[in-house]
């Protein structure tokens, strides 16, 4: 049976979604996630971004890029945090996270780099290490730089 938008919403609209279980709905989910990320419900948009990263599919990166440009930081934080599940994290996606004005997005962008770091991102991380107004993020970036070296 095809996976419907309602099937996806039923998984994500709960208070404590189980993303591993939701991912079992399969790749048909991804088209619905795009619709949710672009929708007006911020909670569902953030949860859709979270599921997109959890699924770690080829289509996950463009979905996270979409979420990373969302006007609401809650959605952007969700995208950055779920990017840690990606095995094909791109430099452009990581750059979006690290350039974000919101410290929560930068925090989770750095956290995702603790798992995998695309080429060419070191400069961005060093810039946070040296210049970020948030001392916690500077320290977090320092650890990422150490790990990269």
């Amino acid at each position: 049976m095809p996976v419907t938008l309602q099937d996806v919403v039923r998984q994500l609209d709960r208070d404590e979604p189980d993303y591993e279980q939701a991912a079992q709905l399969g790749p048909e989910v991804l088209a619905h996630l795009r619709q949710l990320i672009q929708g007006s419900n911020i909670g569902l948009a953030a949860k859709a971004a979270c599921l997109a990263g959890t699924m770690n599919a080829d289509e996950s990166v463009p979905l996270l890029e979409l979420a990373a440009r969302h006007p609401d930081p809650v959605v952007r934080v969700a995208a950055a945090a779920s990017a840690k599940n990606l095995t094909n994290m791109t430099t452009s996606l990581a750059t979006i996270f690290l350039d974000d004005v919101d410290p929560g997005v930068r925090k989770w962008g750095l956290r995702s780099l603790e798992v995998t770091h695309p080429e060419g991102i070191e400069t961005k991380v060093e810039k946070i290490m040296n210049d970020d107004p948030d001392s916690g993020l500077r320290e977090q970036a320092r650890k990422v730089v150490e790990r990269m070296q």
Binding site: E16, A46, K47, C50, T54, A78, A81
Partner: peptide
């Protein structure tokens, strides 16, 4: 808090 990772309404 503002959000959790993974995204939840509460924990």
């Amino acid at each position: 808090v503002r959000s959790t990772s993974p995204v939840l309404n509460g924990c």
